[in-house]
Design a protein around this nucleic acid. Structure first.
Length: 226
DNA sequence: CCCTGATTCGC
DNA sequence: GCGAATCAGG
């Protein structure tokens, strides 16, 4: 198995939701727990409550150089330094086909009834928010118009993995491997991998410091019963 | 023992 | 870049 965009997205999502590496590996399939962890670290997302915290002892100066294994001759500088600012994983804005001129389509971000009021600040106005990952750089709101999300016949049915492309929302509905698992399939919020509604789920608007954030929406349509 | 994530290092 | 092997805490 290789790390396709979809799989990386899933990994990200699940990782940030706090699923264990084992669970993620299980969902993705074809990869080991170690692979997931390794990939997660390479992606820059890391540091979740780990059992093995930094065993930072104040006094451990005379560490016996006689390491059991092939002792690293060169003391590896444990670069506990701040992980370099993670580059915003902005997908390169793909050329968007000319859309029908339609005003006000943008402003009407459908607010889910049960969803938290704070959803987004408009197209391109989302802020990726992760633990320790708060970045200012936000792609400038593209001066584009959203195409009226007409229920086209092609998305009328379940959107399968093979149906995914750059223009339709790839938000997973249900769980991978289950018979009715599919993807949202709506027209994407330009510049994002999801439709407007799911952008609101994936990205949360920046709130003033100290503001209590409403509980996160249930993941992937709810906890999985195993 | 089981689980967990972190890290290393050969590929 | 990938991930098995390894480490280490719960």
């Amino acid at each position: 198995m290789s790390w396709t965009d979809q799989r990386i997205e899933q990994l990200r999502s699940m990782w940030e939701k706090g699923l264990t590496a084992s669970q993620i590996a299980d969902e993705l399939g074809g990869v080991s727990r170690n692979a997931v962890i390794g990939k997660a670290h390479r992606l820059g997302l890391k540091s979740r409550p780990s059992p093995v915290k930094a065993t930072e002892k104040v006094a451990k100066p005379a560490k016996a150089p006689a390491a059991p294994k092939a002792a690293a001759p060169a003391p590896r500088p444990a670069d506990a330094a701040a992980p370099s600012p993670i580059a915003p994983p902005r997908p390169e804005p793909k050329p968007v086909p000319e859309v029908a001129p339609r005003d006000a389509a943008v402003d009407a971000a459908p607010a889910k009834p049960d969803a938290p009021r704070i959803v987004s600040i408009g197209p391109g106005g989302f802020i990726r928010q992760g633990p320790g990952d708060q970045q200012a750089p936000i792609p400038p709101a593209p001066p584009r118009r959203l195409v009226p999300a007409k229920p086209s016949p092609e998305i009328a049915d379940k959107t399968s993995l093979l149906d995914l492309n750059d223009r339709i929302c790839r938000w997973p509905m249900g769980h991978p491997g289950e018979p009715d698992f599919h993807f949202c399939g709506e027209a994407v919020n330009p510049g994002f991998p999801y439709c407007v509604e799911h952008c609101g789920r994936a990205y949360q608007a920046q709130l003033p410091r100290g503001t209590r954030r409403p509980p996160p929406p249930p993941p992937f349509g709810g906890p999985r019963v195993r």
